[in-house]
Design a protein around this nucleic acid. Structure first.
Lengths: 190, 190
DNA sequence: GAAGCAATAGACAGGTCTGTCTAGTGGGCT
DNA sequence: AGCCCACTAGACAGACCTGTCTATTGCTTC
């Protein structure tokens, strides 16, 4: 019986590769990290990487998928925890603040990965999917608020969220999430 | 007498290199474009590049400097053109909208360049300088508005500007500048 | 006309990267 | 016991990169 992810005794090459790749890709960028380093630090043979993920691109895709799942789950949970439509919006920015406060957080993985990615490639597609999810989330939140133009409000809230994301990446100042929350409060109060 | 930049008859290697590098770096990213392509497309010899700019890094620095000058000049002009403090703020977002509407615009050059740049390197330093200029500009605008907490308002406006910048890069939709302007109008009206 | 200098053209070194391929090893299942 | 297969270890090919170095050309100035 193959060892599954729930078993802690020993992780297989697939899990070790993904764990190491996630750590290195996120810290230093997908282009800066070569597979040799991932192999060395994970203790996996090169052949296993190519039989499991097919290519470096495949490993990158798996990496982005886990980041996306982590993020969407985190935000969905924060939204579900409260009932008031306004509180739901603020909960998103609170979740962002908690994310920014995490040790080792260095900005959104998708922003970093997509910056130098060739158009139409693996990273581009994964990023577009993540953006779609975000857009849909903000739209549902804005509709829940009963705004007269939910689509416009959703775009503005998304703008604040994006602004905090970019600012965090460029300035490395987690407090920006608080500013985004404050601005969001003004927008949904108006 | 050496030919200066005002003379249109023939541009020297320095100008041709910078022009070609700007075009390619901006379109495809500083890491994706090798010097061989810049040399081939500009018709300049490799020796001239290294005697003029010292290294690829030096060329990148010159590229970012011209982008920065272009941007700061553009925004400063837009601000000076109007007198009303509120109109000055909106003028910044109007300038952003015009920038986004330009043919071939693909998002902020600094965001793209800094995404995969090593910390503390040439790109990082240039980006930090540009960020400082932006922060100062928004602070002066907020102070001109006579807000009770100019620093907080400046950060929120900057957030909207950043949000539009990131959204433009990820979604390639120039209309986002209009959303940023609308949200800014709400913030400075409150 | 001669000298000097900037620029061209391109070979070359030394490094990095992805991906392929071969050989050996060890544990689990029949 | 014996077989199978996943995995390890690492050499290798082929491509690309930056930066150096040499030889040559052509313009400018003395």
């Amino acid at each position: 019986m193959p060892v599954t992810s729930t078993t802690k005794v020993k992780a297989g090459p697939r899990e070790r590769l993904l764990e190491t790749a996630t750590r290195l890709f996120y810290a230093e960028g997908v282009n800066s990290v070569g597979i040799d380093r991932i192999l060395a630090e994970s203790g996996v043979a090169k052949g296993s990487l190519y039989s499991t993920y097919g290519s470096k691109d495949g490993l990158i895709a798996a990496y982005l998928e886990t980041r996306r799942d982590r993020q969407t789950l985190r935000i969905a949970e924060a939204i579900e925890k409260v009932d008031d439509p306004r509180q739901k919006v603020l909960a998103v920015f609170d979740a962002q603040a908690r994310l920014f406060a995490e040790r080792g957080f260095r900005g959104c993985a998708f922003v970093a990965a997509s910056a130098e990615a060739p158009r139409g490639g693996t990273i581009d597609v994964a990023t577009a999917g993540y953006r779609d999810w975000q857009r849909q989330m903000f739209l549902e939140l804005a509709e829940g608020l009963g705004a007269e133009d939910p689509a416009a409000l959703a775009r503005q809230l998304h703008l604040l969220y994006d602004g905090a994301t970019l600012s965090m990446r460029l300035d490395r100042d987690p407090s920006v999430a608080g500013d985004a929350r404050a601005a969001a409060a003004v927008l949904i109060g108006a």
